[in-house]
Amino acid sequence: MNPVSTIKAIPGHVSRTSVIARHAFTQLVRMKVFYFLAFFAVILIASNFFNLPQHEGPESAGVNILRSIKSWSLGAMTLFSVVLSIVATALLLPKDVEDRTLYTILAKPVPRLDYLAGKLLGVLLLVFVSLALMDILMVGILQLRTNMVLTDQMAMAEARGWPAADIALLKAEILAQGPTASLQGAVFSVFLRSSIIASMALLISTFSSSTLFTTIISFLIYFIGHFQADARAAYLSGEAGTSDGILARGVTLLVSLVLPDFQLFNVIDSVIEGQVMPLFIVGKLTLIGLFYAIFYILASWFIFAEKEF
């Protein structure tokens, strides 16, 4: 195929992929996954009541509740996005086979890469929309609560005759616990991690025999992936003087090369604790997320391309 015809073919790929993505999204929405949002709202409201006034001094009253709201919200987002990414992706191919939709699609001139990319994008769109809705809810509640804490604390500081500089410090400290750009960076890292998990589950589902197998293996890889950084560090710092050392280095190298490093995306705890997430880190995380997603989708296509149904 010459370059001109390749460029001409791109809109066709994009439109086919987006049609399949929309269909996958609708298919998943019909599975009533958004009911989770009601559950999330309950968690969010409940997290507002975990205030322990006897447990904190007047100068930090209410600030801990802001941390509690963020912990509960981001925790729920993480769990929801991981479970949804794995289960929804694991379900997609077997469901299409079961409904015989797959045969109808593949009988048409639809490249299998477009089909896989469309399916994955459908899942990612669902995860993105869900996270965005949860994020809006979290930011709304957090903003309201931050304003309340700020009003109370400012009144306390003024009543005690605090100097203006001390009041400004207190204000900055409270605002740092409210909705910040770093918090949005943390939510985005949750989405990036979900994208990797979903694309990895897609690869597994192309050769797996059942949904259950895909789900279990994906969860296992997800958990083991949190130790990849340790394996990499052990490999890079290890000594290979003994036969045990050589074996250990071999295993750690294998783990480092095969498994994704999910620990990289574990920034939410630090952000909840008040650390700032620089923009270049968001950029680098996006790059590595894209690398994984593109690699896994191409690998899935490689296995799926000539698969007989």
Binding site: V267, M277, L285
Partner: peptide, 12 residues
């Protein structure tokens, strides 16, 4: 990236 995250105190 791990080094960057550690420098920014972002890794647990």
């Amino acid at each position: 990236l791990t080094n960057d995250l550690q420098a920014a105190n972002l890794l647990p």
